[in-house]
Every structure is written in C-alpha cells, then in structure tokens.
Design a protein around this nucleic acid. Structure first.
Lengths: 159, 159
DNA sequence: GGGGTTAGCGAAAATGATTTTCAATAGCTG
DNA sequence: CAGCTATTGAAAATCATTTTCGCTAACCCC
C-alpha cells in the first residue's frame, strides 16, 4: 500500500537507469532499482554474488525472487552497468562498472577469500595493445592474481 | 590383459610424475598418467575441459570415470602441473603449466569462443609488484581479455 | 489518464557442471 | 609379500544458475 519511494518524485538515479533500460527495450522495475541501489548505496558492497544480493534484500525486507536477481544481473551486465567477476571457485560476483571508474583488478587470498583491489595502467595498455593487434573489438578484461595473504601465511597447515 | 605401456620399462614422463605425486603422499595411477599425457601429447589440446578430457579418453578406448577426471585435475592443479582457466561461462578449462613455459594470457571471442594466447612481460611485472606490495605469496595469475574477433564482427545481429 | 500489449515477476521444476558416497581395487612402504 | 590406505567407478547428491508458466505491472498510444 505505502509507496516504494520510486513512484513519482524525480529520482535522478532512477531516471538514469530508466533511460538506459528503455533505450534497449527493457523496463524500469522496482526490483532492478533495488538491486542496483545495493551496489551504489553501500560502498562496502564492492563484490556481491547473486545469493548475497538476495540475502541483503531479504534482510532489508525486500522479497525479490532469486531468479529475478539473476535476470537483473544479466541485463545490467549486458548494459555495461555491472561487471562479472570470477573471484571464488564456484559462484560469480558482480561489481559496479562506472564509466568514470578506471579499470581495476583483483588480488585474492585463496585461503581466506579476502579480495584486494589494485590498478595499474600497464594492464589497460596491454589489453588495448592485444585487442588491436588481433583486430578484436574489446569488451572487457579481467586480471586476477591468486595467492596467500600475509595473515594466512601463519596458518599453513594442510587444508 | 595386455600391458598399458607404463608397467615396467623406464618411462621418464611417468617417473617425473611419480616423484611429484609421491612427494606429497599421492600415488601414481594409470588414470593420472593418461590424463596428463593428453595435455603433453597433443600440442593442439591446449585448453581442455573435464568433459573434453573424458571424451578424448573414451575415443581412444580408455574408460575413465568422469569423477576420476575431476579428481585428477584437482590434484594436478594443486601440484602446480596444470592451471585452471575461466574461459567459457559455464565450465572450467585446464592447461599445462610448464615450469619452462612463461606466463601467457588469453584473448577470448565472446561470440564464437575462439581463444588466442599472448604474452607480455608487463603482466608478470604487475602481478609480482602487487603481490609483494601486499605481502602475498603469489600462487597464480590470470589475465583474460574478452572481445569480439574480426570474423564475428561481420555477424553483428542481436543475440 | 485508461487500455492494450508484452516485458518482467515469483515459485517451482529443470538443468548441468562438479562433488561426494561407498564398496572394491590397486599403489606404496616395510 | 602383506598390510595400510589412497584411488577408482558408478550412482546419487549438491548447488549455482536457468527455464517454465500463469499472472502482474511498465510503457506506449490515443
């Protein structure tokens, strides 16, 4: 009954999303807004999996189906709003892909799962060079380094 | 009844594998030898998925259970003999990780799936720099660039 | 501003890669 | 060679992700 906060008053965030969606024949739904809001709202929520998104929404009282979460994530990846990451072994993670935000990469501890981000212009340089050299249209690049973090190096027992 | 060709006469390939396996408490089995032989035997078989390995073995008359293939791949990844790659969306691929072979990376066409390899010392330099900067022990690094290959750029219809 | 069209939703079932279970077998070490 | 235990095969189990289907809600047009 009560409003969801998106219905009428001008919301620049929503307008932006709506335009991007409608341009490609997609519709602006409250579910998509809430999912995207999770990323832009919480700076600590850099990397989220579908299940984590579903859980966080449930925690804040939003009952959104897990299939809807997956569908929304795919749409946003295709629109270039999110990027899909292969951080853990089994599930995929997603992060906001701002047009401003420069390409950044990941250092993952295979022991505790901690993820650290870093940037280096050389990475972008190499991906540009290679895509051009082979005549590819570049869509995306992922650089992930796996290792053991300083903290976990103390606990080196057999897994 | 007839031999498998590995039973007795000195096989440097097998001895090498046996030593590596035994050093960590693993055993040399004919299944593991055959799986590893697929990689070193066929230079065209750069990137293989578990299912492809199972199929190739079946084609050459070797009946090895798919679960054994998965188990062998994990062991070899842990021993540093193989590297796990995230090339396609759904399955994992594996490739030989020679101590000689320098780190190389992948350029993937998201349309046709073609995989091209390239090398660039800057990538290794960056991963070394970052792991050291954060105090990590470096295990592995993967750099994958996604794009559309020249051939597929002609077929740009909506998916 | 309402009505028709159709994208999108939820719930549950389906899929498909990978993992585990368990009894039988085969490496390795003494 | 014997004993211990890692490994295998086959089938069942997992588990993330996708699909199906009837219903709802966005968007477009008048």
């Amino acid at each position: 009954m009560e409003g969801n906060g998106f219905t009428d008053c001008a919301n620049p965030q929503a307008d932006f999303l709506k335009e991007i969606l409608n341009r490609e024949g997609f519709r602006l739904t409250s579910q998509r807004q809430k999912i995207l809001a999770l990323f832009s709202g919480d700076p600590l929520a850099h990397h989220l999996s579908a299940e984590e998104i579903h859980q966080r929404l449930a925690d804040q009282g939003e009952k959104i189906s897990i299939s809807t979460v997956y569908r929304a994530l795919h749409v946003m990846v295709n629109l270039g709003l999110l990027q899909e990451l292969e951080l853990a072994e089994d599930r995929k993670y997603y992060e906001l892909l701002g047009p401003i935000m420069d390409q950044h990469h990941h250092l993952v501890c295979v022991h505790c799962g901690e993820v650290t981000e870093f940037e280096d212009p050389r990475i972008t340089a190499v991906s540009d060079r290679e895509t051009q050299a082979w005549g590819f249209t570049r869509l995306n690049a992922q650089f992930t380094v796996y290792g053991i973090c300083p903290h976990c190096q103390g606990h080196l027992v057999a897994p």
